[in-house]
């Protein structure tokens, strides 16, 4: 059971010669087995918070703890490789690798032998409901929904139980959106993942166990809806 605690986190960056305070003393927590949604208007800081949770950046002030350990003191490359994974609105699959190779990438990065990596990758691809024929297809040959599911399979393949998704359904039609959200829910409720989704889709937010609403870099409301393990 993993627990992530965000404590008084602030983050700022410089854009067009001015400092933007993206997060201001944010406090929140996340647990395994639950599906979280972070919602808010554009510029509310939700993507910034997600990138900090995913270890892509470090807070300027405050701390983020994973199971009591300060994220800033951890090896973030290992954290991103073995523990956390991110799924993006733009999918961000490697365009020149086929689906199987994309999912195998994090495993090969860990030094897993190729055959074993391929076997695990195939299993993950199967778990997101994609057929075998997708293995040899390159991203440009896949639909948006298929690409996003491959991205989720890649996130699962690495073995970590923390899954962060930044507007994962932003580029998908309704049917594919439903497929992807269903997978994320299943991962959280049945597989024990800590799933955190940034979205401004109220339908997705409504399905989350916990919704953090953000405005102007702060969490202004926390809404619990139960569910989860």
């Amino acid at each position: 059971m993993d627990k992530m605690v965000v404590e008084q986190v602030s983050y700022s960056y410089i854009s067009k010669y001015q400092t933007i305070l993206a997060l201001r003393e944010v406090n929140c927590s996340f647990e395994s087995g639950r599906f979280y949604a972070i919602t808010g208007e554009s510029g509310s800081g939700k993507s910034t918070l997600l990138s900090l949770l995913a270890g892509l950046d470090l807070p300027k002030e405050g701390k983020i703890y994973l199971n009591g350990e300060d994220l800033s003191k951890m090896d973030r490359d290992i954290y991103r490789r073995d523990i956390a994974a991110v799924v993006y609105q733009a999918f961000h699959l490697f365009p020149l690798l086929n689906a199987l190779e994309n999912v195998m990438y994090p495993l090969e990065l860990k030094g897993m032998p190729k055959a074993r990596a391929a076997a695990r990758a195939k299993k993950c691809i199967g778990q997101v409901g994609l057929p075998e024929k997708i293995h040899g297809q390159f991203p440009k040959m896949m639909s948006g929904g298929e690409q996003q599911r491959v991205a989720i399979a890649r996130a699962m393949a690495a073995g970590g139980k923390l899954l962060f998704a930044d507007e994962p359904t932003g580029n998908l039609d309704t049917e594919n959106e439903e497929n992807v959200v269903a997978i994320l829910e299943r991962l959280a409720h049945e597989e024990g993942y800590m799933v955190v989704v940034v979205t401004h889709n109220p339908g997705i937010a409504a399905r989350a166990d916990v919704e953090y609403r953000m405005r102007d870099g702060q969490i202004v409301e926390e809404q619990k809806r139960g569910g989860g393990q």
Partner: peptide, 10 residues
């Protein structure tokens, strides 16, 4: 491509 690799822990 490099950013995706870094995001995945490379």
């Amino acid at each position: 491509e490099a950013s995706i690799m870094r995001a995945m822990g490379t």
